[in-house]
């Protein structure tokens, strides 16, 4: 009797939980609340699950030996495990995704031991002081939202070399003309860096900031 009673009570409490929302929705004073936070326009590097940000993201360039002539090292920004993601859930008229040196146009590749070379050489060849080129046109743009979400309003930037003399301190990776909610990512953005002749051996690094701007 006692066991049956307890079981009956548990079942009744389950039914109560199921039925209460229905009763509440029929009430003249609704008690259901739902808050939808305003969306944001944001960018990040995500792992292959499209959700988890990559901790301390970076792009490694293949090592080069010290040489008597200018050398070019090439790398790729964005791959299946490092997706350059954009999420636009904000109401806006469009946005631009750009890339620039965190330290501004005076920034350098630095090995931490006073050896540096530049990413934005003012010479045409880029070999005098070092120059980085970015080519988003070869990248792959993938929409990653609902089936209604397409890349129609999004254009990829052109291949560009950083060159402070030409005020080329920022490179456009993507532009959108629409404020329609969209999420997606870029993979395979081409990067190449010209390393000046006889550059000292070392592990060089350069901070770059990727900015998404509502415009």
């Amino acid at each position: 009797m006692g066991k049956h009673f307890r079981k009956g009570m548990v079942v009744l409490s389950g039914l109560f939980v199921l039925l209460v929302p229905a009763v509440a929705s029929a009430s003249s004073q609704p008690t259901l609340n739902q808050t939808v936070n305003a969306g944001t326009l944001s960018t990040n590097i995500l792992q292959s699950d499209d959700v988890t940000p990559v901790a301390s993201p970076s792009v490694a360039f293949p090592a080069k030996n010290v040489g008597f002539s200018c050398q070019t090292s090439a790398a790729t920004l964005g791959d299946t495990n490092n997706k350059l993601n954009v999420t636009n859930l904000a109401s806006n008229n469009g946005w631009t995704l750009t890339m620039a040196a965190t330290g501004g146009f005076t920034a350098n590749w630095d090995d931490g031991a006073s050896n540096t070379y530049k990413f934005n050489d003012a010479t045409a060849s880029g070999c005098t002081n070092g120059q980085m080129s970015v080519d988003p046109s070869v990248s792959t743009l993938t929409a990653d939202c609902s089936s209604a979400c397409t890349n129609t309003n999004i254009t990829k930037g052109s291949a560009t070399s950083f060159n402070h003399a030409l005020s080329a301190d920022n490179v456009t990776l993507m532009t959108s003309s629409s404020g329609t909610p969209w999420a997606g990512y870029l993979t395979g953005v081409g990067l190449s860096q010209k390393i000046p002749a006889s550059q000292h051996a070392g592990n060089y690094s350069l901070g770059m900031t990727i900015t998404i701007t509502a415009n």
Partner: peptide
């Protein structure tokens, strides 16, 4: 999202959003 290139080589990436 701010990343400093202190002990790593290569391009070290940081991210931000901005409003015109």
């Amino acid at each position: 999202a701010s990343n400093t290139p202190s002990d790593r080589s290569g391009v070290v990436l940081s991210f931000r959003s901005a409003i015109r």
